[in-house]
Design a protein around this nucleic acid. Sequence first.
DNA 1: CGACGCGTTGAATGTTGTCAAACCGAGTGG
DNA 2: CCACTCGGTTTGACAACATTCAACGCGTCG
Lengths: 248, 248
Amino acid sequence: MEPLKTMSVVTDSPCPHRHNVNCGDCRMKALCLPLALELDQVEQLDRIIQRGRPYQREEHIYRAGDAFHAVYAVRSGAIKTFAMTDQGVEQVTGFYLPGEIFGMDGIAHTHHISSALALETSAVCEIPFTRLEDLSIALPSLQRHFFQLMSREIINDQRLVALIGKNSADERLATLLMSISTRNAKRNLSELRFRLPMSRADIGNYLGLTVETVSRVFSRFQKQRLLKVDKKEIEILDLGGLQELANV
Amino acid sequence: MEPLKTMSVVTDSPCPHRHNVNCGDCRMKALCLPLALELDQVEQLDRIIQRGRPYQREEHIYRAGDAFHAVYAVRSGAIKTFAMTDQGVEQVTGFYLPGEIFGMDGIAHTHHISSALALETSAVCEIPFTRLEDLSIALPSLQRHFFQLMSREIINDQRLVALIGKNSADERLATLLMSISTRNAKRNLSELRFRLPMSRADIGNYLGLTVETVSRVFSRFQKQRLLKVDKKEIEILDLGGLQELANV
DNA sequence: CGACGCGTTGAATGTTGTCAAACCGAGTGG
DNA sequence: CCACTCGGTTTGACAACATTCAACGCGTCG
């Protein structure tokens, strides 16, 4: 009876984007901010978090120039963040999957210097930053965890610099695919079959390549039987081969 | 008499690398961690900071694999941070000048994943991280300031990604030179004449270019009368021209 | 149906990397 | 004092990978 009840709770979950989920129930709690917290502390965190209706594809979470007042956690869907260089060229700075935090680059200023938009229908938790700061003083483990999250963001960016600065187009794309694959695995999704939420242009922009090159590399990977590609649907046929190309 | 005394205090400063300087007297206090703090708070910060003898050229401040226990502030000299990719290739992740904080990528883990070494004789303030965390709880403005510092590091890395991913060798080097120039200006040093503390190889590594390309671009800039280059001594002849090439 | 966005493919071009050689200054030792 | 080496830098010739420009295919939506 008990297991049945649990089952039903899991299976009749009506929609992955529903907004009446608190941190304690969220399927991403093991990856996200609550990770470092005790049960009662999660409740305190939960009280400051704001959850609105889901964002539709192409909808902005924030835009460069908006006043900064929160960081965000992805609950479902996928988010891309990007900045404009002074010459008006877009630079994609990241892709964020459920359980991941974005918007930390806004902390340094009073206004956002980059933008964030939903690549598909996405639910997002808004974490008002001044309240997070206050709570971090009450909960040292939250402070520590947030320092670590920001540090991890720095490490990720540095790895991206190395990837773009030192690796070929093949290696760059293989690394991105491996990244998405392993991040999917952590979310109990298939690491071998998934749908890319972003366009070829976004991928190229992120990796410092042109759309044409991205397209060619996908074709090459297919010829080499590393992948099966159908538009945005990806099937990894040779995980080892891809891993060998990627910078782990 | 009063001005004379002040003069003498400034001029007989025996050595820029001396280690018996507290934050309140440090010439970098307006750029560094104390920036956000009141006078008595600076004293509290000062008490947790450790200052050893200066590091010599090529000496490591920490190595990848060392236990992480502190972040660092440059007091004098210049520091380069770098990581090894799994293939054993060095990746330079940053150059740090007086008043700047480095080592924040270590916060995410118990051990450093990158290394830091002195490019020239350098004095460094060591800030034990657990004590900084404790103090951040007592001094909310310190917590805020440190969050902002980390955010700024993220922004810098993202800008580097954009630079390497989207710009030519000329633009990359021009941007680095402009960065050093403006950072020098903030330290009341000449923005038009300075000595690069790092080798051509370091520059190339950092910018995702080969040594040969870096060298060629320096030559090209000289032919175009943008720079006068004598080994590591740089004189900017056409600041506007350089700025135009750089991504501001 | 035609227009449009997105992705793919081809051919030509070019910037940067690779390989090789030479230079230069500093330091060393005969 | 000079010859020597050594690391860092510069320069040249060539090749390669990615970009650019162009065309085309495909699906969607008006």
